[in-house]
Computed example of a mutant assay.
Amino acid sequence: MKKRLVSKKNITLLLCVSVFIAAVLCWFSYEIWSFSMKDEAKPADAILVLGTAVWGDQPSPVLRERLNHAIKLYEQGYAKYIIFTGGRRSANELAESEVSRSYAIEKGVKPEHILIEDQSLITEENFEYSLIVAKPYKLETYIIVSDPLHMKRALMMASELGMTAYSSPTTTSAYSSMRTKLPFFFRELFYYTSYRIIYALS
């Protein structure tokens, strides 16, 4: 009888933990999805574009849409500078930021208005190295450009680093169909949940 009672307690505890985890994941999912639709763009010192893959000397479709959105904001006068981020995945490749710079210049962005950091490999490093290159120019406010579902985690990182940052997700994205959007969403949910746990424990 005692063993049976203990077993029931364990099952109840497991059920409670499962419900709690499910509730947390649902809340995080809501945060990511709802924030993805917010565009906070306002006049700032710089537009900061989070890097992603390049194909040789050309931006991948995902990066291209981020660049197009940033260039549009620049042309509309939201900021004087654009900061392109992203390093190289191997010694034989161009850095993501170098490819971004070339693309932007071709689209009419003045070279003197472009800053790059070519060391980062992950989102958090995008911000950290960007702050280093921005310091001599005394840039203090930033419009962050990335894919919609990436924005919640990105803005949380920027806030933790003390940045005054505004979200401006791409209005077009390579992640447009449910077939491509759902894997990206679940990946972001995993990273965002991990980041929240690490942040809570630190």
Rank of each mutant, 00 (worst) to 15 (best):
A91T: 14
K72C: 10
G86H: 03
K80T: 15
A70E: 07
E93D: 15
S102K: 03
H69L: 03
H69D: 05
G86R: 03
H69F: 09
A91C: 02
A91D: 15
R101A: 10
A70H: 06
A70D: 08
E96M: 11
S90W: 06
A91R: 04
L73T: 10
G87N: 05
Y74M: 07
R89H: 13
K72Y: 08
L94W: 08
R101K: 07
G77W: 05
G87Q: 03
E75H: 11
V99Y: 12
A91G: 06
S90N: 10
F84P: 00
L73Q: 06
G87M: 07
T85G: 00
S97V: 09
E93A: 15
S102N: 14
G86T: 10
Y78M: 14
I82C: 07
K80L: 08
Y78G: 13
R88G: 08
Q76Y: 14
K80V: 12
L73A: 12
S97D: 03
G87W: 01
S102P: 02
T85E: 00
E93T: 08
I71E: 05
Y81H: 12
A79T: 04
L73R: 11
E93K: 08
S100F: 01
G87V: 03
Y81F: 13
S102E: 13
G87A: 05
G86L: 01
R88F: 03
R88H: 11
R89C: 08
A95P: 08
E98Q: 14
L73F: 09
E93P: 02
R88P: 12
K80M: 07
K80I: 11
K80A: 15
G87F: 01
V99R: 04
I82P: 04
K72V: 07
I83A: 00
I82A: 02
Y81T: 04
H69M: 05
T85A: 02
Y81K: 14
A91P: 04
R101T: 04
K80D: 12
E98R: 04
N92E: 15
A91M: 13
R88I: 08
Y81S: 07
N92W: 05
A95Y: 02
E75M: 06
N92T: 14
Y81D: 05
N92R: 09
I71P: 01
V99L: 09
A95K: 12
Y81I: 07
E93M: 13
I83N: 01
E98S: 13
